[in-house]
Design a protein around this nucleic acid. Structure first.
Lengths: 278, 278
DNA sequence: TATCATTTGTTCGTATGTATC
DNA sequence: CGATACATACGAACAAATGAT
């Protein structure tokens, strides 16, 4: 048995003790923690107290628990996949993005709607859905539209077999823009990069603004993205701006933050920096 | 009493019922939920079951609980503060950043070490600390250095009284760089933008790479940043690159994702997009 | 295939402490 | 001070997942 005498509730003391044991290296990442029964014995507390302590460590993301097996130190590990949030334009005027360039629906035999290729791997696109919707407060604000304006939307669920990371991607195109640039919605399947190329061919000079937020996932997002406990999601909104800085289309990307990180490249621009507030 | 008959554990059924009540608008954001006793009565379950359900909703970030008062629907609210992650260069060659431009230690009478001003407000810098350290695996990788290389570091805790948002900022300068460009570490207090200006005056042509991650905070981070339950933090690392793309300094910024979001501006660059993996 | 021990998950009951009003 | 509400803690029992026998 180990003595514990710390401030706060008993279960907090137990949690702190286990936390320090983990951080000190007594329990390696991926290694099993003592079972509940052993922790009860070791700290001389009841089972509810031990479970409360474990629950606290789970909420911190320090520990993961598998029913029937035990508790394990979560291997923090560096993110396995980096989403490089840049846009490139080749000499022929075509745009490319490092991530998720949908090529063709060639995976139908696997029950997959579309194949997504990246520079160094293949990502399967699942459950591609095209539908119509309307702007909400948030999406309307980003697109500079009133609420309840009509939109054309696509949803894609992406999966990277190398890292095991899932992501959800949504494209929202206002009716007004779709009418002005018909090729945008004529094809059944258009990738973000292709969308940019189409807009550029329609005479638009493009740039993009992107906002990044993090939050806990909703239950259905946890299911879709296969997220473990205490895993936040990165919530990215990219607005494509055209001539006169007019917002044209909105893309939303959501992915679990346990495996993914984002990368940006910044260069100094002229004039004083501005600042925005919502 | 309300009937509940859904798949899964009892407490999950209760959680689902309360969740739907919230999302359907039965309970407005900020409004109190029924007390534990009322939920026991309403769903005819025991207290542990009700508490377990509430705990699940807390972990989702949907509900916040105040001891002695009750449970409340958490007002999701749009982020109050947007960190615009850009760098500007004025005609005189001086760099500016939209956020956190440290001006002068004029707040000493308030027990504050430095005052930080922004374009549209004032942010108090607290607990400015300068110290020496060594690269870890992560910071060494970002700076292109081996582990255990010597560094000069600053820590700042930032607070925006308008939004109530806190942030931690750390600057890491390798000894090698500090030796080459002495002004970097001569002053007791140098802001990021001033750092850039100094490096540019030393002949460097600058650009920045930034990686964004999200994770649950450690206990001490929760304390420092005053974060409520189930609030992830945004973890940003910015590397300043100089001539020959050499990594010069590393900045780390951490802030609670409940109030803050990040904003980036992207323009198309030439050539094929690259992709990196950790 | 079936059984069993181990381990975590769920649910009840009960009592007491502490914060808020 | 008392009433209400959440926090902590203990005990007990059974369910469900896992892995070995």
């Amino acid at each position: 048995m180990t003595e514990i005498q710390r401030p706060g509730a008993l279960y907090q003391q137990v949690a702190a003790a286990v936390r320090e044991a983990i951080l000190s290296g007594e329990f390696e990442p991926g290694a099993p923690l003592p079972s509940e029964a052993q922790l009860i014995e070791r700290y001389q507390v009841s089972r509810p107290t031990v479970r409360n302590a474990i629950a606290a460590l789970r909420a911190e993301g320090l520990v993961t628990v598998r029913h029937g097996k035990g508790s394990f130190v979560r291997s923090e590990g560096q993110p396995v996949i980096t989403f490089e949030r840049s846009v490139s334009r080749a000499r022929d005027g075509q745009f490319t993005t490092p991530d998720a360039a949908v090529t063709a629906p060639a995976g139908a035999d696997r029950g997959i709607d579309a194949v997504v290729t990246t520079s160094d791997g293949v990502v399967w696109g699942v459950e591609v859905k095209k539908f119509r919707s309307r702007t909400t407060k948030v999406t309307g604000l980003l697109l500079g539209l009133a609420e309840e304006e009509a939109l054309v939307c696509w949803d894609r669920v992406l999966f990277d077999p190398t890292s095991g990371a899932h992501a959800m991607h949504r494209t929202l195109i206002p009716f007004e823009v779709a009418d002005t640039v018909p090729p945008l919605t004529e094809a059944s399947e258009v990738s973000p990069a292709e969308t940019y190329s189409i807009l550029a061919q329609a005479g638009h000079k493009l740039w993009w603004s992107e906002t990044v937020r993090a939050r806990m996932p909703h239950p259905d997002e946890r299911t879709t993205l296969r997220l473990p406990d205490a895993t936040p999601i990165l919530d990215i909104a990219r607005v494509t701006h055209g001539t006169d800085d007019r917002p044209l289309i909105l893309e939303e990307l959501r992915t679990g933050a346990d495996r993914a990180e984002l990368a940006y490249r910044i260069t100094a621009d002229k004039g004083p920096a501005r600042r925005t507030r919502a």
